[in-house]
Each structure stands twice: as structure tokens, then as C-alpha cells.
Computed example of a mutant assay.
Amino acid sequence: MTWFILISLILVGVILVLTEIIFVPGTTLIGILGLLFSVAGIYYGFLAFGNELGWWILATTFTVNFALLFYGFHSGVWTKFALKDAITSRSFDDRLLGLEKGQEGKAVSDIKPIGKAEFGDLIYEVKSDSGFIRVGSTVFITKLEDNKIIVKS
């Protein structure tokens, strides 16, 4: 039973430290708990088995922890958990494709100062630089900038 308690304390400590490194880096609480469990296991080993075996338990625990961390980082096991992809797309990249300055369209909603207008067969959100524009009015594109369509009637 003494060995079971000793191994359980040290094993829980190792698992908590690995959890800190892999899943929740930077929280430090789980890592500190892992270290406390490992220290408690080593202390329990000193109490239960005396100094000579206690030093062996300390050395073994330190060696196993170091070997697991070294193997994990050196072999690339942790890269399976790492996010390697990056989002490179942007929203509305092709929104202004086919539109040009001076193009004529029709307001399909009141534009006060933002509303909707139809250019060709597509409806776009537009902004008026000349104030209120009634639905059904003819509008012209004055500016195309920063994915915004600026119109006037």
C-alpha cells in the first residue's frame, strides 16, 4: 500500500505538470499543483522508507520527469497538439469586383446614409455622401474604397 501511495502521488504530479505544459500553458496553477504532488510523493518516500531510499526516489522522480519532458519536446510529440494552420482569407475580398466609379445603379431601399442599391444583378450595401436617397432612385458610384461603396443620386 505504501508503494501505491508513493507512485500515485508522483504519477499525479507528473500528469499535472505535463497537462500544464501541453493543454493550459501559462496558468501555472496546475503546474504548481503538479510540483506539490511530486514533492509530497518524495516527502512521503523519505518518511516511509528512510533517507537512503528517499534519495533514490528523489533521483528517480527527477530523472523520469526530465526524461519525459526531454523526449516529448525532442521527438515532436507536442506538435500534434499545436495549431499549424493560419487563416489567410479575408472577408469581402471580392466584394467590389465588377464595380467601377461612375457606374449607375438603383436604390432598392432608402439610403439614409446607409442602405442597399442594385448594380447589375447584385445588391450591395452602400453609403450615401449626399444625404438621404429614396428607394427607386438612380444612384451613381462616386468612390470605391476600403470595401465601401460610396454613392450619390
Rank of each mutant, 00 (worst) to 15 (best):
E20D: 05
A86V: 15
D93A: 03
D121W: 04
D146I: 02
W3D: 15
S130C: 01
I114H: 10
E125V: 10
D121H: 09
G120A: 05
V108H: 06
L96H: 00
S38K: 07
F92G: 13
R95L: 15
V17H: 03
I150D: 09
G72A: 07
N147H: 10
S38T: 13
F73H: 02
V108E: 09
A67T: 12
D94I: 09
E20R: 03
F140R: 11
H74D: 10
L83T: 08
T63V: 14
Y124M: 04
L9C: 08
F4D: 15
D85C: 01
L29V: 12
D110N: 12
T79Y: 13
I30A: 13
G102S: 05
K84P: 08
F132P: 02
L69Q: 11
L33I: 10
I123T: 15
A59L: 13
L29Q: 07
Y43H: 02
S137I: 03
H74K: 14
E100L: 02
I22N: 04
E104R: 14
L11P: 06
F46P: 12
E20V: 09
G34L: 14
M1I: 09
I10T: 10
V77S: 04
G34M: 14
L18P: 06
V39D: 04
L36D: 06
V139C: 12
K84W: 02
D93F: 04
T28Y: 03
I5T: 15
V39Y: 02
E125I: 09
G31H: 00
F23S: 04
T88E: 04
